[in-house]
Design a binder for these strands. Structure first.
Length: 408
RNA sequence: GAGGGUGUAGCUCAGCUGGUAGAGCAGUGGACUGUGGAUCCACGGGUCGCGGGUUCGAGUCCCGUCACCCUCCCCA
């Protein structure tokens, strides 16, 4: 046993896992470029209030899932549990609202949540998030959800996109009231957690997974029936845009999110295979103002990179590997060949082991070389190389200075 | 924060009702010093997660602790 281990919930990512991680990350970043999002690199630490005021005081994230600590001057800081709060803070602090009529940003990096580790859940995990500031039109919502769909398509991950509208300041209070009244009536059928939620955050009772709660809220009033004119139109238009874009989605009237800042559109992409949430987001039209910026509607989502990575089955093949195998007193010539091959853009491994040809070939197998360049005394003398295809076993002698005949 | 499971060699695991550790794979070396991708042989390597207790004796029983996995809560 090693004397030291990584901290619970904090993991090294390496080998095949890292390849998948990078594949997911790179694929998403490429898509974000196509949608013309600009990257912003955000700090991992913010003042605690930034999260308390954006995510909401009574949410689980703020109440029990944050890494909180004091700096040397006694100020309360927190490791970010999500990216939106920091992005909004940065948007305001850097006065990005003054540069363009609207702003599209994306960020990538580690997030921290003090939770019990589980399948697809870590205390340090990684997200890529995208945010659009300054436009309230449902076309933004549609394009963001389309982007999420494109991510899933690109990565070949089967998932279902669920959408809902949770209204705004105008219409949500009335709904909340109606829902509370209803919950009061069925309180006898609710689990103890929901009894508590019923008063503090009734919306959350809707997506409780306990069976009795599920059936108890089956006939509960739906937010969609309480939407004000503006929210109603926003939601209907969004759906028509999604249809136009051929983005498949399912309406889930019980979809609410665990963060307080959402308004109108909320959505999630749920894995068909594992049933866990892969990507989630929504509109937050008041948050910028609440954090001290000018009134600015906004919309965003966050992708869980580890969660997508664990669903990646096979990676695209890598560049073929050329392994140069010197044996005998030929290292000077081998180095020359290696340099030339790399100049040609080949991925090259030079065997550092001193061994006979047989051992070198075994080594090449361990490195999973696609091609092998055999360099012995004979090759050196004639300034040639022997190129061998490790799959077929065929090999040919090539004049080194040209190296023109390389087979793919 | 609650519940369940697991923890023996680098990896996957065996070890019956307690008598001081084994296999396969990997690794290393070698009959073969210019031809590999499970030919053959040999070899190395383990405070049995950690701490304590019961016992003449514990990998094996008891308690605690840590880590991982799974479920709940919640979430990416």
């Amino acid at each position: 046993m090693a004397e030291f281990q990584s901290v619970r919930g904090f993991h090294d990512i390496l080998g095949e896992d890292l390849k998948k991680f990078r594949y997911v990350s790179d694929s998403i970043r490429n898509l974000l470029k196509l949608y013309n999002f600009e990257e912003i690199l955000l700090p991992v630490v913010e003042y605690l209030e930034v999260f308390q005021r954006s995510i909401g005081e009574i949410t689980d994230i703020v109440q029990k899932e944050m890494f909180v600590f004091q700096d040397r001057k006694g100020r309360w800081l927190a490791l970010r549990p999500e990216g939106t709060a920091g992005a909004v803070r940065a948007y305001i602090q850097n006065k990005l609202y003054a540069l363009k009529p609207y702003t599209k940003l994306f960020y990538e990096g580690p997030m921290f949540r003090y939770e019990r580790p589980q399948a697809g859940r870590y205390r340090q995990f990684h997200q890529i998030g995208a945010e659009v500031f300054g436009i309230q039109d449902p076309q933004v919502d549609a394009e963001m959800i389309d982007l999420v769909y494109q991510i899933l398509l690109k990565l070949g991950i089967p998932a279902t996109i669920e959408i809902n509208s949770i209204g705004c300041k105008v219409c949500r209070p009335a709904y909340r009231e109606a829902l509370s009244e209803y919950l009061e009536k069925v309180a006898g059928h609710l689990c103890h957690v929901c009894i508590d939620r019923k008063d503090k955050n009734p919306l959350r009772v809707l997506d409780c997974k306990v069976e009795t709660c599920k059936s108890a809220v089956k006939d509960a009033p739906k937010m969609v029936d309480y939407l004000c004119q503006e929210c109603r139109e926003h939601y209907d238009t969004l759906k028509s845009y999604l249809d136009k874009l051929s983005v498949p989605y399912r309406e889930n009237h019980h979809l609410v999110r665990g963060l307080d800042y959402y308004t109108k559109t909320v959505f999630e992409a749920v894995s068909d295979e594992l049933g866990i949430t892969l990507i989630a987001g929504g509109r937050y039209d008041y948050l910028v103002e609440e954090l001290g910026g000018p009134p600015t509607p906004a919309m965003g989502f966050a992708v869980g990179i580890e969660r997508l990575s664990m669903l990646i089955k096979d990676l695209p093949k890598e560049e073929p590997l050329y392994m140069v195998l010197p044996f005998g007193d030929v290292m000077d010539y081998a180095l020359e060949v290696v340099k030339k091959l790399r100049e040609m853009g080949k991925r090259v491994e030079l065997s550092y082991k001193k061994a006979g040809l047989k051992k070198q070939l075994e080594l090449a197998n361990k490195f999973k070389a696609d091609f092998v360049v055999i360099i012995g005394e004979d090759e050196k003398k004639e300034r040639r190389i022997t190129l061998k295809d490790m799959r077929t076993g065929k090999q040919e002698s090539i004049n080194f200075p040209e190296l023109v005949h390389e087979t793919v």
